[in-house]
Amino acid sequence: MSSADAADVFHLDGHDVPFTTGETVLAATSRAGRYIPHLCWHPDFAPHGSCRVCTVRVGARLVPACTLPAATGLVVESDTAELRHLRLRLLQLLFVEGNHFCPSCEKSGDCQLQATAYAVDMTGPHFEEFYPARPVDASHPDILLDLNRCILCSLCVRASREVDGKSVFALGGHGIDTHLLIDSPSGRLVDTDFAPTDRAASICPVGVILPKRRGFAVPIGERRFDQQPISAAEEGDP
């Protein structure tokens, strides 16, 4: 950071965070090695602003840090009792909306939803469970798709479209019935050109898109977010 850029800082919970022109608060925070909880944001993709977990306070306003343009002198609060509670409730909404049975999920320990819930001390769902009927698509020879765990972050939609150039996924429906769509006449993954090497195959923050024939390669208890809290973990894919 040159001295000319040194003026370009905003304040996050009392710390100066440098940023470059056009950067959002979350992107700059993440680059600076600080942590604001988030799920639908990924450093490689344009912000989406849908999960709202990165909501921060700027003066009287609550805004998602992922879409908030950084500005010199901006005072951003993130690690406050108010926002920790807000994030806790948002995560609980995501948990009750889907079918999140961590003990039987291969992603457990590597899952961003779970690790973020740990980070906000979520011990229970608080709300009532929806137990939606959602499909599992095991049609693809190499990939399992378990939509019970989908949190509609659309990272796979974006990765498949923008990196893989395939647009294998899209969002369908509306309201509480919003769901992931597969781009094939049958609506099944086997009838797409999806490949395990696709960017979209490794971007899912939860346990929806999983490689087949790989289970417990790393034992439960020794996985990524078992080793260290998500706030201390490197940004990026599991």
């Binding site: 961590c102 003990p103 039987s104 011990t123 769902p125 469970e129 137990y131 009927a133 959602r134």
Partner: peptide, 18 residues
């Protein structure tokens, strides 16, 4: 106190719910 996954969100038994 709700102890464990099953007390908290139904756990394995709740996977019959659909």
């Amino acid at each position: 106190v709700a102890v464990g996954a099953c007390a908290i969100n139904g756990g394995l038994p709740a996977q019959r719910n659909h």
